[in-house]
Design a binder for these strands. Structure first.
Length: 293
DNA sequence: AGCTACTCCTGGTAGC
DNA sequence: TGCTACCAGGAGTAGC
């Protein structure tokens, strides 16, 4: 494993973004939908996002999981009682959060923060090393989901929308794309990848991005995310079935992310790492020239 | 409005 | 080998 001077090893991305969250939602949907939550165990209360564990337990116990959805980087468990809406569990994986549905008798997992026991003996387990993740019950999920920007893979997000939205914002491109109220689901990895594909510099002012560049960016965002979802459909489940959960078991074909000091796959120029808004940012100085002024 | 800095956390790594 | 110091990072918040 090679390392770079100041940035540490080019590690596998363990930070879930839209494609990873979508893959998780698909994986847990089948074993979860139709199940009844019999009880809960909360090992780290702050994971609940402020609700006391007793109240949380009362909120979800006895409810059925009617559907598993995704919005931005949230996994959404739709709860019902007697066929009536009974609120939602919103799961945000943040950095190291993992969701597992383990059949009865599976050994416990390290770093398990919240468990929902199901009526077939299986357990929904929220595992999270760094404790940044959230597993929240909300009667009205719109108070959270209503703040989110559009879904990049759905109607409503296209070149026209993006061009107009960029023109209206006097912000740097990368921090804007990371802002979930602007666009839902992008994180550090896919922003770097999409900007590279569209040949845009992360420090470019949003309102100065040309119409053709905005169109290229919209396309880059869609293809980057869609391809990642495709890949993870075949490989991420392997990772999720491994009790150790080794993130190295699936590899992405990243162009710039985590490739500091390595040649750009398009032009061979060495990939640079800069810091934008306190986040490590990877770019090709030749493909993504710095804007002037 | 939009920027920076700080907070939450812990495993992994660098440097001794 | 073993210790300590520091880093990564999504999102919320405070302060300018």
């Amino acid at each position: 494993m090679s390392t770079t001077a100041r940035t540490g090893p080019a590690r596998a991305p363990d930070v879930p973004e839209l494609p990873e969250v979508e893959t998780v939602a698909r994986l847990i949907r089948r074993p979860l939908v139709g199940r009844r939550i019999e009880g809960t165990h909360v090992a780290w209360e702050r994971t609940l996002g402020g609700q006391p564990k007793r109240a949380f337990s009362r909120s979800v116990r006895g409810a059925h999981v009617a559907a598993v959805e995704r919005r931005g980087k949230y996994v959404i468990l739709v709860l019902e009682r007697d066929g009536e809406n009974a609120g939602r569990i919103l799961v945000h994986l943040r950095m190291t959060g993992r969701l597992h549905v383990d059949p009865a008798g599976e050994p416990e997992r390290d770093y398990t923060r919240v468990v929902c026991r199901l009526d077939d003996g299986a357990e929904l387990r929220f595992v999270d090393v760094r404790k940044f993740g959230r597993f929240r019950f909300l009667r009205d999920p719109d108070e959270v989901l209503g703040e989110l920007g559009p879904e990049p893979l759905e109607d409503g997000f296209d070149a026209t929308w993006l061009r107009g939205a960029l023109r209206a914002r006097k912000r740097l491109l990368k921090p804007l794309l990371l802002d979930q109220t602007f666009l839902a689901g992008l994180g550090n990895i896919y922003v770097d990848e999409a900007l590279h594909q569209a040949r845009l510099h992360p420090l470019a002012p949003a309102h100065r991005v040309s119409a053709p560049k905005a169109a290229a960016l919209a396309e880059a965002i869609r293809t980057t995310l869609a391809e990642a979802i495709e890949r993870e459909g075949s490989s991420f489940d392997v990772f999720y079935r491994t009790p150790e959960g080794n993130p190295g078991s699936y590899q992405h074909q990243f162009q710039v992310y985590g490739r500091t000091g390595k040649p750009c796959r398009r032009c061979g120029t060495l990939v640079r790492r800069i810091v934008v808004g306190q986040r490590g940012t990877h770019l090709c100085p030749r493909c993504q020239p710095k804007p002037r002024g």
